[in-house]
Design a protein around this nucleic acid. Structure first.
Lengths: 211, 211
DNA sequence: TTACTTTAATCAATCGTTTGATTAATTTTG
DNA sequence: CAAAATTAATCAAACGATTGATTAAAGTAA
């Protein structure tokens, strides 16, 4: 139905705007008036659609969580690839995600940091852990097959992989000064940052993991 | 004078409390009533001492910035140490800081992320860059001396070092699940996390940097 | 009509800030 | 010295503004 389609599109549009505004201002800093204003809808619509500000906030995550489900699957079960090839594939995929979902990533780790809304924090942790599990599987397999060193610190490798990316994304001012080019610029991200992250991460982990 | 001492102590006490509350709730989430309540002072004292909520917020950083000045100095100028020894020393010092200033670190990178208050963001960036410069110097020297590989990516190494630490500190829920022990527990941080971070970072960078 | 959507107006609560009064400490004056 | 004047510190109460939320009425489509 046309109505339903419009309704869904409008909800989705509000969610898109809210995601950006929340990531820019934080939960408390983003007022419902600002969000509704930027989305071009009446303030009451937020409560009409999402019940409350917190409901809107939660739905942003719900939407992403469900879209995250089918990513990175079955990479660990492929027996035709070497563990290191799997790692390279993982790094490439993760490097691509650097740009996409940029402001959601910011919002995600911002929320993970302040651990109010404990039910949500737990959900997000589980969601991220699911992504991490695949990586964990690859690393364990590499060790078992004798491809990787036996004394590698798996949790720390994961922390390094995600921490490096977050550091760059979440502190663009700092990172731009560090890297020598603006990572606020989409073109720069595409042509310089993404290749640089992928290349570095492969070299770094190759040196640490491989025998 | 007795007066001045008390006054300074009280201001410092407010700053300590505010630092913690801001890091827990964010700037907008931390109300002046909550901060003054936790500090055990009248609400009006915040404005009396710091002019405004933002003034209080800024002074937290001013205080830390000045205390950061004399740290990490002259490490790069020591010619008796190898570049790698300097790196190890740097990692140890940075590992020690993981616990200390824990909530300030959180506050710092939280503020760097949301880049309103642009004047402050620039100050913080410069302050962090000053810390980073020392590390940069060590890395360049190591390359020049032939101790390190010639093709290392200095900015990314720095991002990895700080990113890994931030990831662990800023997402305690996630990291605890990942590492297998609670990093909310001070004792665990001291006995397990600190050694693990130091050891891992040395092994990781040794593999990447050294010939 | 009936059911759903959107709007402007309004709500109580909370926000950061300011006020005037009061007390405590310091300096000035005689 | 002591009395008076000045300054600093602290407080409860209240301010206007803004918050998230709700309402009742108007609009829209079937």
């Amino acid at each position: 139905m046309i109505m339903d389609k419009d309704k869904i599109d409008k909800k989705d549009h509000i969610l898109d705007v809210a995601e950006r505004v929340f990531s820019e201002k934080g939960f408390d800093g983003a007022s419902t008036r600002l969000i509704s204003g930027e989305a071009g809808v009446n303030m009451a619509m937020l409560n009409y659609y999402f019940g409350s500000k917190e409901g809107l906030f939660l739905e942003i995550f719900e939407r992403k969580i469900s879209s995250f489900q089918n990513i990175l699957q079955n990479l660990g079960n492929d027996d035709s690839m070497s563990s290191w090839s799997k790692m390279e594939t993982y790094i490439d995929m993760y490097g691509e995600k650097v740009v996409r979902n940029n402001c959601f990533q910011k919002l995600l780790y911002q929320e993970m940091g302040m651990n109010r809304r404990n039910d949500l924090s737990d959900k997000l942790r589980d969601m991220l852990l699911k992504n991490v599990t695949e990586l964990d599987k690859i690393l364990r397999e590499g060790i078992a097959k004798g491809e990787f060193k036996t004394d590698i610190d798996i949790p720390m490798v994961i922390a390094t992989l995600y921490g490096t990316k977050n550091y760059i994304i979440n502190t663009p001012l700092m990172s731009s000064a560090l890297l020598g080019y603006s990572i606020q610029d989409d073109d720069m991200i595409e042509t310089k940052l993404k290749p640089q992250i992928k290349s570095f991460m492969k070299n770094l982990l190759k040196a640490y993991l491989l025998n």
